[in-house]
Write a protein that binds this DNA or RNA. Structure first.
Lengths: 206, 206
DNA sequence: GTCTATAAAAGGATAGAC
DNA sequence: GTCTATCCTTTTATAGAC
């Protein structure tokens, strides 16, 4: 990468301060509307240090995105181990929505969608390490349950993706548009409804 | 509005030319990255005319968004009149996805999400005249079918929203991120899968 | 009402001292 | 490796002639 991590404690601190400030600024204003002046004002220090550490504005942005993305994905790695499919789907759905609807999750999606043209590889990387992994893990379970004759799913992959979208209801989209920020219980009701619908749709009626 | 429509044929033509050029530019580059120079280069004419007609950059942007939004919503107004719920859902799902996945539809969502902070009322207006109307029309049908004992739906409103999200699969999201642009038959397969899942989920098992 | 020319500001990037 | 000061491009917005 173009970024050159600092080698001494002082540089370490400066780098961390810039990252923290930049995260706040990019999250709040997006890429194009964010100015490095804003970042400097928050972090203190000088423009030159920022350029030395991150190369340019895009390098700083990429560093922020990768950091947020990593933070988001972490909780989804530990797939619930419950035995009952319905409970597993519930737990997974809650973890998924929790990551998506958090302020930094929403900001990540907003800025990634808005700047996908300028940062195509970044968008691809985030997608692959986030939603794609979630869908794959879910599809794996669906396929397994199907093989065990516990459910009837012809296309686990597509079903998994549709389930993940269904979980969002339109809460995620509305939050992206800043129309409103739903409460915890609204989100939970949405997840439960989606799970109920999926379970009804894939259970074997006999 | 700050815009002042032209009163003579020549002004009419200039306004139309600017609108067309601006639409292409905003759709391609978003709001912040679009420059009025690009618009002028495409439309011909002068900067001063643009300012006289639309007030400023934001005024021009709002005019474009309202135009695209109106174009998108039109096809969704004519709800399919078939008798069979499954066929109605299929037709509606196809029309919905057709609007969403069209280049101008994707561009509208991208720019609206990316600039929701700067244009909150615009985002609200588009949401209300688009997805909200679609969800309401669908919920109305679901509620009716439920009353007629043809299906079992406890919360038509939420089910409608979740169905609309499910239809997208993750095709819409991936297209927003410019990861890929699915073919017609992929979209159709996704819609059909969603309809099948919904119908299975809400049909009365007896 | 439209054009040419220009003002005015913002923001990204760098040179050079320490 | 960091700071101060500055350059330079881009872009929004307007003044004034026709």
């Amino acid at each position: 990468m173009g970024s050159s991590p600092a080698k001494n404690p002082r540089g370490e601190r400066r780098r961390a301060a810039i990252l923290e400030a930049a995260k706040a600024v990019f999250v709040e204003r997006g890429f194009a509307n964010a100015s490095l002046d804003d970042v400097i004002r928050r972090s203190g220090g000088s423009r030159a240090t920022l350029y030395r550490q991150f190369g340019d504005k895009e390098g700083l942005f990429a560093a922020i995105i990768e950091q947020i993305s990593a933070e988001m994905v972490a909780p989804l790695r530990s797939f619930p181990t419950d035995q009952d499919p319905e409970l597993i789907l519930l737990a997974f759905g809650r973890a998924f929505m929790s990551a998506l609807m958090a302020p930094s999750g929403l900001a990540l999606y907003r800025v990634l969608i808005g700047e996908a043209e300028r940062f195509p590889e970044l968008a691809k990387a985030v997608y692959r390490s986030g939603p794609l992994v979630a869908a794959e893990q879910l599809a794996l379970r669906l396929g397994r349950w199907n093989a065990e004759k516990r459910v009837s799913v012809t296309n686990p992959d597509m079903t998994a993706r549709q389930f993940l979208e269904m979980i969002k209801g339109d809460l995620h989209f509305r939050a992206l548009l800043r129309l409103d920020t739903p409460r915890e219980n609204e989100i939970d009701a949405c997840v439960r409804s989606a799970v109920r619908l999926l379970v009804a749709g894939i259970s074997k009626h006999n």
